[in-house]
Simulated assay, not measured.
Amino acid sequence: MDIRLLWLAVGTFAIGVESFAISSLLPQIADSTGVTLTQAGYLVIAFALANAFGSPVLAALTGTADRRRILTITALIFAAGAVWAGFSQGYADLMAARILMAFSAGLYTATAQATGVAISSVDHRARAISVIVGGTTMAVAFGAPLGALVAGLVSWRGSYFMVAGFGVIAAASIWIMLPSGLRGSSLTLRQRIAAVGLPGVPGALLTTLLNLAGAFTVIIYLAVVTTGSIGLPRELVPAVLLAFGVGAAFGNAAGGQLADRIGARATVVGAIVLNGLMLVAISLAAHLPAGLVAPVFFALIILWGATGWAFPPAQSSYLLSLSPGNAPLVLSLNASALYLGIAGGSLIAGLVLQYGTPSDLGWVGALFPALSLLGIGLSAALRQPEPSMARLG
């Protein structure tokens, strides 16, 4: 394996820590900034939307620029945004910092994947992408609990300073390890968006959006579910995140292996069904006898992490099978669909908390994985061989 891929993954790790640790920070942020918990959740929605829509635009604008320079600058901007967030004075200030972080995160992730493909041989490109995406998995497994632990010790601001440190490490490593002169294809925004029309791709993107919306209906308020629905003390939130992360690490590895053995589509369907079942079970766990609630909840969280994170690698494999010659384009669009799903799930969760209770989040979220199966059916129905639109080298 090319060691340079690991340094690219450090950046996706930093981004993932911020993106997933915030679920444990929202109650503190709401108290600190004087807003409601639902309004604090709008920080997640803004980040997700800025990432989803900003990534293809910025990728089009910087497509032919030196990739080492783009990756280094975006990692430093992300780190600067994290410092800004740590020192922010009020809700609007923090919102602006997170939007800046979202734009830089989206461009970094898209460029990192394209760079991984460029520096790898043709038969190792999928593996290169999996290593870079693996940075996000490690962030879920270990970074998010660490962020929650730091927040518990020194407040949520300390978590942002930690994220900034990871961003600086990524920038320095990339500048040292990557060669200069790597440049991408000159693709316009219209050409990038046109990949949405490739046969089978629209249904697959809809599947990603809906399945992630269901998962993030709970993930984004997992701390609230832990304390408000399950009744565990706030000090156990990092342990809950760690349990979820350990499951996610196993699920990510298993999802890729299962996709190779039984097929990507079958793995995606299985992961979606299990995601929905786990969400329902999390809602039901609050109604168990008092002595069973905590152990059953932790077991469910581990299983949910595993089943939920079996989806991303299998879905990436499925998208690659739909259009092998357009891998960077369809994976970039999938990332946008993922963040649109996060935004949708966060919005839905906020409405549930406004009109219901934390224990309602699971069963409401489970509706969306069920709907996402329609996307898989649509993708399969429309799938046809299609020539490559663009190749990224």
Score class of each variant (00 low, 15 high):
Leu8Met: 07
Thr12Val: 09
Phe13His: 09
Leu37Ser: 06
Thr64Leu: 00
Arg67Ala: 08
Ala75Gln: 03
Leu76Ile: 08
Ala79Lys: 05
Phe87Leu: 15
Arg98Trp: 01
Met101Val: 08
Ala102Lys: 07
Gly106Val: 01
Ala110Ile: 06
His124Asp: 08
Arg125Thr: 00
Arg127Ala: 14
Ser130Leu: 13
Thr136Arg: 01
Phe142Ile: 14
Tyr160Val: 04
Tyr160Glu: 10
Val163Pro: 05
Ala164Ile: 07
Ala170Trp: 01
Arg190Ile: 12
Arg192Asn: 10
Ala195Cys: 14
Pro199Arg: 02
Gly200Thr: 12
Gly203Asn: 01
Leu212Met: 14
Ala213Ser: 15
Ile219Arg: 06
Ser229Ala: 15
Leu236Thr: 14
Val237Ala: 12
Gly247Asn: 09
Ala248Lys: 07
Ala254Glu: 11
Gly255Met: 04
Gly256His: 01
Gly256Glu: 00
Ile262Ala: 11
Ile262Pro: 03
Val269Pro: 05
Gly270Asn: 14
Leu277Ala: 15
Met278Leu: 15
Ala286His: 04
Val293Ser: 10
Val296Asn: 09
Val296Asp: 08
Ile302Met: 13
Trp304Ser: 05
Trp309Cys: 09
Trp309Thr: 02
Gln315Leu: 03
Ser316His: 06
Gly325Leu: 02
Ala327Trp: 05
Pro328Glu: 08
Gly341Ser: 05
Leu353Ser: 04
Gln354Tyr: 04
Tyr355Glu: 11
Thr357Met: 13
Val364His: 01
Pro369Arg: 10
Pro369Asn: 11
Glu386Arg: 14
Glu386Gln: 15
Pro387Val: 13
Ala390Pro: 11
